[in-house]
Structures are given as structure tokens and as C-alpha cells.
Design a protein around this nucleic acid. Sequence first.
DNA 1: TCCTTTGCTACCTTTATTGTAGCAATATGC
DNA 2: GCATATTGCTACAATAAAGGTAGCAAAGGA
Lengths: 106, 106
Amino acid sequence: MAKQAASERVRGSRSGRPVMALLDLLGRRWSLRILWELRGEPLTSRALRTACDEASPTVLQARLTELREAGFVELGDGGGYGLTALGRELCEMVMPLNRFAERWKK
Amino acid sequence: MAKQAASERVRGSRSGRPVMALLDLLGRRWSLRILWELRGEPLTSRALRTACDEASPTVLQARLTELREAGFVELGDGGGYGLTALGRELCEMVMPLNRFAERWKK
DNA sequence: TCCTTTGCTACCTTTATTGTAGCAATATGC
DNA sequence: GCATATTGCTACAATAAAGGTAGCAAAGGA
């Protein structure tokens, strides 16, 4: 099997399939949690940090940048992070994990 | 607010809410990918490693142990890792990400 | 002006992941 | 029996990611 060109590659996978890139992005620490915490109204960076158990601002900032570049999160005019339409759509797929987790922890 | 007892805590969260533990587990590298790759038939540890772009056996083994303890993955009698009923259920929630990702990468 | 909050960064320490090699146990072919 | 391969799994050193603490400039309110 021939090696794939670098331009066709995607972080977290050599297949280039979009889902791999998504799984990789969501598989980084705090990614899922951030989506979860932003499910309601927008939060300021400080409020988000509080919601995320005081996770270090270094990672949170990195994740927020990635999630913004991915088009899932946006920084509102008057400050505060919120989900984009796409992000809200993605969040809808994460929400069912709540009920699942409740049944799971037994 | 009083500090919570250590026994009530869950990794990745001080709230103790099951979903937090789940988000943390799924947020570790290769967790989501492993579930994804096991969506079909069981795979041997080597085959799984190949499917996961030759991820290092150290992490894969760690994730597999965690996913087994969580009850999502099991090691079959004749060898080979597969999803449990619970794991398959969880996988069902991950699968929709595929179509979403296809739309997303544009 | 002074105080507060915003988003964000620097710095260093600790933890997680990678990469390579190889083990013991179990099969498979000869 | 006896090499040969494959299984699940581990050791160990190197690199990358995350944690923890402090603090910045900019914007807003009193």
C-alpha cells in the first residue's frame, strides 16, 4: 500500500476520513466536556473554567481555539463562549450520553 | 462550598455525576476510536492496532483495560476484542458522528 | 481615576502518549 | 517433537500534552 500524501492526511488518522479527524478532536481532553458545559447559554472563559472543575486555562484556551477553528464554538460580541449552529447540532449527539451514563454507573 | 469526600469523586469531575466520568473516559486518546473500530466484528489486539494507525500498544492496552473495566469491551474466549451489549449501545451513539463529520468537513 | 472582569499568555512541573523492542503462552505446520 | 507464528501484553526511554500558578493588556463600571 502506497503512502498517502501529507496534504491528504488528517491528524489522528492516515485515512483522511472526516470522522477520524472528528474523533481525534473530540478525543482530546476537555473537548467533550466543553461542548457539554456550553449546551445551555454562553459562558465567559472564567465561568467555563469553573464549570470544568477549574481545569487549567492553558488547555481550555487550546481546546476553545480548536473548537472555534472547527466551527463548533464562537466568541460572542459582548464576550462569552457559545455554540454555533453546527456546534449545537454536535451537542445534540452528545446529550444522550447523559441518560446512558446514568444507567451505566450501576 | 464544602469539599467533597475523595470516595465520592470521579476522575475528570468533582461533581460525581456519571456523565462526567463517561466524558472523561471517552475523552482520553483512542477511546472513541477504539469503539469506532470495534463497531463491526471483534478484532485481535494486533488488528485493532493496525486499524488505529499503529497507535502504540502501551496506550491501546491501557484504553482497552479501562474500557473493559467500564464494561464496554470484552476479550473473547478465542482471543480478540469485541463490544459488550453495553458497549454496542454506546457505539450506537457514536456512529451518527460519521454522517455529521462528512457534512462538517466542507 | 480606581477597581473589576474580560480573554488570553508565560512559565515550569507533572502526567500521558509515543516508539521500539521483546516477553510468555498458545496455536499451526512439518 | 520442533521450529514458526500469532496471541495478549509489558518494559523502558523519549517526546508531547496537560496541569498549576501567576499575571498581562484591554474594556467597562463606579
